[in-house]
Amino acid sequence: MLNAQKKDMWKLILIFFLPAVIIWLTAMVIPFIYGIWISFVKWDGIGDNYTFVSVANYAKLFRNAKFFQSLNRTAVYTLGTVVLSNVVGLALGLLLTSALKARNFFRTTIFVPNVIGGVAMGYIWKYIFHYGFTAVGKNLGIDWLSKSMLSDPTNALIALVVVSSWQLSAYLMIIYVAGFTNVPGDMVEAARVDGASAWSTFWHVRLPMIRSSITICLFLAIVRSFMVFEVNMSLTDGGPYNSTEMIALRIYNTAFVSLKFGDAQAQAVILFIIVALISVLQAYFTSRKEIQL
């Protein structure tokens, strides 16, 4: 740090840094700490009528099969979405860094699903599942496609995975494109000159070189899927028969539909712990490898 800057240091901290810190503290940190307190009380959300119940909300939660079903379902959904979106995103990244002409045009258009929010996306797909796919199914005589996928519990979950991956894969594609762009062209060239096939060049040269992009994309997909809310609400709204209610939607419904704020907050704290653990794992994995994009 420069001497002249030292003189102004506290002025800088006070005027430039403190406002940001205060907003962040009041919008995130204080509510979060307050939330931990709420998870220990019984509160219907109206007025100040709450009673301290210690760990009763958590105890109730651990006896609640529906909560574990929701967590379990979120894990299954996450697994499906992470695999599908990464495989498709990687393939797109490869395609859009190949010798293809108009690569930028394709990158721009394929990314478009990420421009619209989860609510609009869920509704657009809802009508495609209800009327688009059923029309195709009826015309071609495909039985399982003739009735809406969203009305069957298993198919509705698959539909949710497909819609989420449709959007997420286009997002990950951009990160994979950046990864593949940074693989030195002469390395690939050298492998080809030495007689390596296209497949083994991909598998032994290019894929190891984008390892850090893969780590980033995997964790990004895990965290995003675990916290899925908006598309869950608009596409299936948890239905049919609560079979697709993921954990974030469940927290929302417990709080703002059932008005059990303590219960909802206890679930939210559990969700926080899970996501925090995933992030710690991510930090561990990324610190082991040099991040290059």
Partner: peptide, 16 residues
Amino acid sequence: SMCAPFQAYMIPLVKL
């Protein structure tokens, strides 16, 4: 803090 899920402080935000 960027990795904290919004649900973790959503209810207290409304309350506060």
